[in-house]
Design a protein around this nucleic acid. Structure first.
Length: 634
DNA sequence: CTGGGGAGGGGGCCC
DNA sequence: CGGGCCCCCTCCCCA
């Protein structure tokens, strides 16, 4: 038996390692959004330290804290404490008050930190009993403390309400000042209500690439960057849907998006009356902007420069002296410098760069956790030595490597025009780039490359929020939009908002009454093609779910369709027509039923190229029609 | 209760 | 990279 032995410093060393990893973003698996600051951390550590955070990280990789309860500056201290067991020495005038830290620690349910704060407050004589048996620090403690649940709680019923450890609810007050006013500068110029604070320099909105301008007119400002006075601000309301994923709901709620409770009086939500969405709390748009850029790996420097420029303008407006030099360390964010930048480690307390009290530094410094900006490329490609901040990116890179090298080393041609040497048909000329794996052909090599990614085992574009991987970056960013609750496309008629233009187009048919999709079997009309498809399934499936053999009739009907009424997916039609040689071959007639079964699955689809194909092959569908006619039920 | 239609939303994929 | 379309899943409503 081994005697029990212990290395006394083990726990300390472990924590040190974890904190170092956190500062590098290494193995961080959760993002905490606090207003306009992003923090990366490890779920395990958070869960071990805070019952409240534990409940949140179980559900999501991105959690959003109510900045009225916890300011970014305070959360930084809380996170530091969690990872170090130490509470930073407050800097006069700069650091959040101990009371605010206590409030946050209580809110987040970090008992050790609560105890530590209380101890310090008592020592300094600032801690006093409050009514109701609770304790609270005098002075700033109660500021902004309220009983509201954090925004993220709205997302899933199972999340426990934060139970303040020993703080009684206090009156709603001014939200915790998170110094975010320093970042207000970059607000959109669109203030249709004239509510943009005049002292704010309203620069154009920074490029929110994940969002789109709604084509639907003034009722649809993309993000509610329009500032309303807080007293006038109303949360936009849509009937809450409960099928949104937690993360999505969290963000929707957190961003003041349209997923709030409906107005108590049952009135139609504002946007159903066509009024513009109301403002989100100041600072949220900026935080979101940073979030977008951070997620998109966009350079933050430009945004920060804009912020700084706006601040500068503000200072000039106020007749203040020359502005402090813009933070320079962010300039490196934009470069692809792979050298680790030690100043980006917030724990280093580096004296370089802006002072820790610089709000930009204070908040955006968290963004510097972003691996690319950190330059901490821990995942190195062995063949070329290039570093990457995440295994996913390395994987994608390696994948590209092997693809290129495959072509080169094998001496094979890179994917190029594929011409059937025997007989280049029309298809080969129109679509000369053919996939080696599945024989699909494309018009240009880029599309072929894009398609070939669908055969890769590794999907190169992971969502930085939930980790889901995609073969196309565009799909990933679109997916991100759903996380962020971005619905840039608004309906002029009812205010309903959509994530995609196509959805809006579809939706508009509800208002216009247009039903362009017609069932050729029963004449039923549909506004949405997908509903025609599901309708057709009803026709083709018997009560037991098996095909009714009604299909040849349907197929015949289809063959007689004018091109613009056809509802077939192009490649399915092509495939179908490629089978129609059966129909002119009496010996193949017995194959008709399988064909019918085959087409059963694909009937009722849409549109254009199907017509095109049919138009190019009239003899085929004439043959098909004749043959099918013979087998149609009378 | 069930089937069918209407509609919102997400992912895949091609242009 | 964005737009557009297709396919699928899902929910809700109603007969």
């Amino acid at each position: 038996m081994l005697d029990a032995m212990e290395v006394p410093s083990h726990a300390r060393q472990l924590l040190l390692q974890l904190n170092t990893q956190r500062t590098k973003g290494f193995l961080c698996d959760v993002i905490i959004v606090v207003q306009n600051a992003l923090f990366r951390a490890h779920k395990n550590i958070l869960a071990a330290s805070s019952a409240y955070l534990k409940a949140l990280v179980v559900h999501d990789n991105l959690i959003n804290l109510d900045h009225e309860m916890v300011s970014p500056g305070v959360f930084r201290l809380v996170l530091d404490f969690i990872y170090t067991g130490r509470l930073g020495e407050g800097e006069p005038g700069g650091e959040p008050s101990l009371g605010a830290v206590l409030a946050a620690a209580s809110y987040l349910q970090v008992p050790d930190l609560v105890a530590l704060c209380k101890k310090r407050l008592k020592r300094s004589g600032k801690y006093c009993h409050l009514r109701g048996g609770g304790y609270g620090p005098c002075g700033k403690l109660g500021r902004g403390l309220r009983t509201s649940t954090p925004v993220i709680q709205a997302c899933y019923g199972g999340t426990p309400r934060p139970v303040p450890l020993d703080l009684p609810p206090t009156e709603p007050g001014v939200p915790l000042n998170t110094q975010c006013g320093e970042l207000y500068a970059s607000v959109g110029p669109r203030h249709p209500h004239g509510l943009c604070p005049p002292e704010r320099a309203c620069s154009p909105p920074c490029g929110l690439d994940l969002s789109k301008k709604s084509p639907a007119g003034p009722t649809a400002p993309l993000l509610p960057t329009d500032r309303l006075h807080p007293s006038e601000a109303r949360e936009p309301s849509l009937p809450p849907r409960h099928d949104s994923p937690p993360g999505s709901a969290a963000l929707l709620a957190a961003h003041g998006n349209a997923y709030q409770e409906t107005s108590p009086g049952g009135d139609p939500p504002d946007h159903f009356r066509g009024s513009p969405p109301s403002a989100e709390p100041p600072g949220r748009a900026e935080g979101r902007e940073l979030l977008y850029r951070w997620m998109k790996h966009e350079p933050l420097s430009s945004y920060l420069d804009e912020c700084e420029a706006d601040k500068e303008a503000e200072r000039e407006d106020k007749g203040e002296g020359s502005p402090a030099p813009a933070p320079t360390r962010y300039a490196s964010v934009e470069s692809h410098d792979l050298e680790p930048d030690p100043s980006t480690s917030e724990e280093t307390g580096s004296s370089e760069g802006p002072s820790p009290t610089d709000p930009l530094d204070r908040y955006c410094g968290h963004l510097a956790y972003e691996p690319e900006s950190l330059g901490d490329n821990l995942y190195v490609c062995i063949p070329c030595g290039k570093g990457f901040p995440s295994s996913e990116q390395l994987n994608a890179h390696v994948e590209a490597h092997t693809e290129e090298e495959l072509y080169h080393k094998a001496g094979a041609e890179p994917p190029g025009p594929f011409l059937d040497k025997s007989s280049p048909g029309l298809g080969d000329i129109l679509r000369p780039y053919r996939c080696a794996s599945c024989d699909k052909a494309y018009k240009d090599p880029a599309t072929l490359r894009q398609h070939e990614k669908t055969h890769w085992l590794t999907r190169p574009y992971p969502c930085t929020i939930c980790g889901k991987k995609f073969t196309q970056r565009g799909t990933m960013t679109r997916h991100m939009r759903s996380h962020l609750g971005l619905k840039p496309f608004a309906c002029d008629a009812c205010g309903m908002r959509f994530t995609r233009q196509y959805r809006l187009t579809e939706h508009m048919r509800i208002h216009s009454g247009e039903k362009p999709y017609e069932c050729q079997v029963c004449g039923g009309k549909f506004a949405q093609q997908r509903n025609l498809i599901s309708h057709m399934k009803m026709h083709t499936a018997g009560p037991d779910g098996k095909p009714k053999l009604e299909l040849p009739d349907s197929l015949y009907a289809m063959a007689r369709l004018p091109p613009d009424q056809l509802g077939l997916q192009p490649d399915k039609v092509a495939e179908l027509l490629s089978h129609t040689h059966f129909l002119s071959d009496p010996k193949a007639m017995e194959s008709l039923y399988p064909l019918a079964k085959f087409t059963a699955e694909h009937l009722g689809l849409s549109q254009d190229k199907a017509a095109e194909v049919l138009g190019q092959a009239p003899h085929l569908h004439l043959d098909a029609a004749r043959t099918i006619d013979r087998y149609s039920p009378t």
